[in-house]
Write a protein that binds this DNA or RNA. Structure first.
Length: 432
RNA sequence: GGAGAGAUGGCAGAGUGGCCGAAUGCGGUAGUCUUGAAAACUAUUGAGCCGAAAGGUUCCGGGGGUUCGAAUCCCUCUCUCUCCGCCA
């Protein structure tokens, strides 16, 4: 039996037991490491301890049943209590051992990354990502293009200096028509998503620890989130976190799948230690706006749904008329919980750089397993669902590309046709 | 912020130390009846873990304690609701 071609690859304890070499090889392809043999040993110990503890408990329960039928305070009863104390103590001890063994196993098990889907190219890092598609002409002449942060009126409309004064670096003010432009993009993205069948939700922009753990932000990415320790709340780094957790610890009906949702939220990222030459202007911010698409699917259709999701996102860039490329991320560059991931990058003609504006991912059952999101299979038994998400889209970098690519000779920027309905003006940055 | 009440299965809601994984009702599923449907009736219907299976075991908000034995008693945390105060 070969899981490679039968099932979407998931990290399931059964797979680990039956095909440890396969799992070992799959993990070696990712940039994460974990000790499979140690985890298997913990699994063996755990199962033995659980069996012992349950046996002892069964004995105790059987004896207790007899106790219940004896008259209280009778000599037999009192005699039996003494014997029962020993049984109870033994049972309790084994139970503690089993619990400890189970926790040790669970902890190690959670450290196993999701396995890459077979369609994910094997590679060590970003240099080995494949270009799955390109659209538009990035080599075309953009005679007026300059980096957006060098446009003369840029600082007057996206005010970084005052953002520093009020909040800190990476928290700019969008002023006047630029604020309206952001709102236009949000409206455009949400409306497009709605027409593609995604139901809009407006989620909390803080989450608790359980939610952040379920989607995989905790424990390893704790440093990337803003946290309020008084309340135990985290500012969300993406709408993926609250939206995916919508169905945490729930069992869905198979006929309601796939569930497709979209959400606009601000996103907050500390980006600790990642500031440098390439992060000027809108390229990297601590707070930014984004519309996110999230899907819950059954185990069979998640890969097909990922392709649809990617298509939905591509359509946005096409309507915005921004040249872009789609990267099929390789095993060494996809994240810990990812099975398959596409990154969409727009070409910013002023910087002459590709800017990542979307990441579309299939997590298979990885997040859902942690989050306890299931659906009823054809036999009525709960099955772990699959979750997917994709940015559609991250606003600042899209805005950067629009500013650079659509810059006119007179210093104004042409508003893309698809946004004019929301903006009610054809140009921004009109000279004062 | 102050005072009080509460947290039990998909939902509602019994249960105050052993016969309780848990009554009853609703809902769901299957069947009977019907040309079909509704109604009525009958049966069935939580989840996790160990196990090839038989079966076993855990779970009554979370954690800890008392006890031979806990949904039930004690401690603690979290959350919810009601009233008062404050407030967009």
């Amino acid at each position: 039996m070969c899981y490679l071609f039968t099932d979407p690859v998931m990290i399931d304890i059964k797979l680990l037991r039956e095909q440890p070499d396969f799992v070992r090889a799959a993990i070696a392809n990712k940039k994460f490491t974990c000790d499979i043999d140690a985890i298997l040993a913990l699994d063996v110990t755990r199962r033995a301890k659980i069996t012992d503890a349950e046996q002892a408990r069964a004995e105790q329960k059987a004896a207790n049943k007899e106790m219940a039928s004896l008259p209280k305070g009778s000599p037999e009863f009192i005699e039996k209590v003494q014997a029962m104390k020993a049984i109870a103590a033994k049972s309790k001890e084994l139970e503690l051992e089993a619990k400890a063994a189970d926790e040790a196993f669970q902890e190690a098990f959670l450290a196993i990354p999701n396995l890459a889907d077979p369609s994910t190219p094997v590679g060590k890092g970003e240099d080995e990502n494949e270009i799955a598609a390109t659209w538009g002409d990035a080599d075309a002449e953009f005679p007026n293009a300059v980096p957006h942060f060098d446009i003369p009126w840029f600082e007057s409309r996206i005010d970084f200096a005052r953002g520093v004064k009020v909040a800190g670096a990476g928290f700019p003010f969008y002023v006047g028509e630029m604020s309206r432009m952001v709102r236009a993009l949000v409206n455009f993205f949400l409306e497009e998503a709605r027409q593609s069948g995604y139901e809009e939700v407006l989620p909390p922009i803080v989450v608790n620890e359980a939610s952040a753990t379920a989607t995989g932000q905790l424990p390893d990415k704790e440093g990337q989130m803003y946290v309020d320790p008084n309340e135990g709340l985290y500012l969300i780094p993406t709408a993926e976190v609250p939206v995916t957790n919508f169905y945490r610890d729930e069992i869905l009906e198979a006929d309601q799948l796939p569930v497709c949702r979209c959400a606009y939220t601000p996103c907050f990222r500390r980006e600790a230690g990642s500031w440098g030459a390439h992060v000027r202007g809108l390229n990297r911010l601590h707070q930014f706006d984004k519309v996110e698409l999230v899907k819950w699917t059954d185990a069979e259709s998640s890969m097909a749904e990922l392709e649809k999701l990617r298509g939905n996102v591509e359509q946005l860039l096409q309507k915005l008329e921004l040249p872009y490329r789609v990267l099929r991320m390789c095993t060494g560059d996809i994240g810990f919980p990812h099975a398959k991931q596409y990154d969409l990058e727009v070409f910013a003609a002023g910087q002459k750089r590709w800017l990542e504006v979307s990441s579309c991912s299939n997590f298979t059952d990885f997040q859902a397993r942690r989050a306890g999101i299931r659906y009823r299979g054809s036999d009525g038994k709960p099955v772990t669902a699959h979750t997917l998400n994709g940015s559609a889209l991250a606003i600042p970098r899209v805005l950067a590309a629009i500013l650079e690519n659509n810059l006119q000779a007179d210093g104004r920027v042409q508003v893309p046709q698809c946004l004019q309905h929301w903006m009610q003006q054809e140009f921004i940055g009109v000279q004062q």
